[in-house]
């Protein structure tokens, strides 16, 4: 199942996969956060998520919500609180579609 599933994802939509794993030059705000000048969208998500975990930023009463610290605010539109559910969408904003 697994190899088939992946194969399908790739053959179905190579572009979708590409914009997930291609390295992208980062804007300065993001560059500061991840400490690299280039990262893929997937890598960026992993980076932010592990940052949230190591800093214990999930709200203790509602784990679905992240209380942003200053550093996190700087990359997530300055919101004081972010829902985990919207995290991928917020990160995606830093990775605009390339003009054709």
């Amino acid at each position: 199942m697994l190899p088939q599933g992946i194969k399908k994802a790739i053959t179905d939509n190579p572009k979708k996969l590409a914009n997930l794993i291609d390295l992208v030059n980062l804007p300065s705000t993001l560059r500061e956060f991840v400490g690299q000048s280039q990262i893929s969208r997937l890598g960026c998500f992993m980076c932010v998520w592990s940052y949230i975990k190591t800093k214990n930023l999930q709200d203790p009463y509602n784990k679905n919500v992240v209380n942003c610290d200053d550093k996190l605010k700087s990359i997530l539109l300055g919101k004081p609180q972010v829902d985990l559910a919207e995290l991928p969408a917020l990160i995606k904003m830093h990775f605009p579609k390339e003009p054709k």
């Binding site: 994802a9 997930l20 794993i21 992993m46 991928p88």
Partner: peptide, 11 residues
């Protein structure tokens, strides 16, 4: 269990 890509795309 899955590749990072597959797991993340699903999420």
């Amino acid at each position: 269990s899955l590749t990072d890509v597959a797991a993340y795309s699903t999420l």
